[in-house]
Amino acid sequence: MTATPASDLAPADSSTEQNPPIRIIGLVCERSVELENRLNNDDRLLDDPSVKIITVPCSGIIQPIMMETSLKKGAKGCFATGCRMGDCHYREGNKFLQERLLGKRMPKLKPSVNKHRIEAYWLSAVEYDEFRDLIESFQATVDRVDADDAAAS
């Protein structure tokens, strides 16, 4: 991880100005990985401020269009997190999102979307370390895809 925690970069009130551009948007279920005290004022990850977090009540509320929009509007990657498979508080939310992203349930993720820029993680509230590692490898994946895309064009 190369990023410096944003809290070290700036006083809390002006942190927005100091934030790097958003590379990744994360749509995070409020019951999965716990991000309390892990975010700055602008809902960026303290461990990696290029990641912007939007919290939702359940991964099942996430529409594929939200992830498509993130990419269309300039994010390099977009991920969703839900609880462990089998432990969705509302029973089936994570399973349904997974099926939507895999194109097995309506409404589906558009087939034209570059799947390497979309990820989904199933983690419980006490699995922040696992989460941070996954974000790190997602950043690496996105770097690779960026390089491939640049080479192709």
Binding site: I62, Q63, L97
Partner: peptide
Amino acid sequence: CANCGLCVGACA
């Protein structure tokens, strides 16, 4: 209603 939003995820 559980106020869960799974219906929101289902609606296009």
